[in-house]
Amino acid sequence: MTSSSLQYLPRFFVKQRLTMMVNRYEIVEANPDGSPGRMLAVAQQKRMAMKEQVTFYADDTKTLPLFGFKARRMMDVAAAYDVTAADGTVLGSFQKDFAASLLRSSFHLNAPGLDAYGQERNSLIAVARRLVDFPFSFHFDFTDKATGATVLTSERQFSLRDRYTVDVPDQRVDFRLAASVAVGLDALLQR
Score class of each variant (00 low, 15 high):
30 A>D: 05
32 P>M: 07
33 D>K: 01
33 D>M: 10
34 G>M: 14
35 S>T: 13
36 P>A: 12
36 P>H: 11
37 G>R: 10
38 R>D: 11
38 R>T: 14
39 M>A: 09
39 M>G: 03
39 M>W: 00
39 M>E: 12
40 L>E: 02
40 L>W: 04
42 V>M: 11
42 V>L: 04
43 A>R: 00
46 K>G: 11
46 K>V: 06
46 K>T: 06
46 K>F: 06
47 R>D: 03
49 A>Q: 08
51 K>Y: 09
51 K>I: 12
51 K>H: 12
52 E>Y: 13
53 Q>F: 02
54 V>I: 12
55 T>L: 04
56 F>I: 09
57 Y>S: 13
58 A>L: 14
59 D>T: 04
63 T>C: 09
63 T>A: 11
67 F>W: 00
68 G>S: 02
68 G>H: 04
71 A>K: 05
71 A>W: 08
72 R>V: 15
72 R>K: 13
76 D>R: 05
77 V>F: 15
78 A>C: 10
79 A>G: 15
79 A>W: 09
79 A>S: 14
81 Y>K: 02
83 V>Y: 00
86 A>R: 09
86 A>N: 11
89 T>M: 09
89 T>R: 08
90 V>M: 08
90 V>Q: 10
92 G>N: 02
92 G>I: 03
94 F>M: 11
95 Q>P: 00
96 K>R: 11
96 K>H: 03
96 K>F: 03
97 D>R: 11
99 A>L: 11
100 A>M: 09
100 A>W: 13
101 S>L: 04
101 S>K: 02
102 L>Y: 05
103 L>G: 13
103 L>Y: 04
104 R>P: 04
105 S>M: 00
106 S>M: 12
107 F>D: 00
108 H>C: 06
108 H>K: 13
109 L>I: 06
109 L>N: 03
110 N>F: 07
113 G>I: 04
116 A>N: 08
118 G>E: 02
119 Q>C: 02
119 Q>T: 07
120 E>H: 02
120 E>I: 02
120 E>G: 06
122 N>S: 08
123 S>F: 02
123 S>R: 08
124 L>S: 08
